[in-house]
Amino acid sequence: MTINERQDQIIEDFELFDDWMDKYEYIIQLGKELPIIDDKYKTEENLIKGCQSKVWLHAEKQDGKLHFTADSDALITKGLVSMVIQVLSGQKPKDIAEADIYFIDRIGLQSHLSPTRSNGLLSMLKQIKLYAVAYQAQSLQK
């Protein structure tokens, strides 16, 4: 699936929920299911510090694609991180770098992307894009 197909899938899934409690329950469940980042990658270097919650992000290159694992100390953030990873992990660096991440807005969690709230998710998205751009540049040099 392409990045946008995955985003649209999430948006469609969320349309099933009538009230916000169910929505949050689902996000929290996703958070609990997120494959936890290997402890050795939970380093200061991989830490994206937000004002409210922390996110750890680890990237790996495989067959020309980027794979991510992550964790957060807050469950709702973790759930959102899980979805971002679902959307972007295993994609080509070029596609990741150019991706427009619209699903968070569409499922009504846009407050998590507010720059003033600075809770880690926005910084994580930026970091993922940085990895993608850096990887692209690296491949070009070879």
Partner: peptide, 9 residues
């Protein structure tokens, strides 16, 4: 529980 999660709910 993380305070941020509680606050959001």
């Amino acid at each position: 529980t993380h305070p941020f999660d509680v606050g959001e709910i």
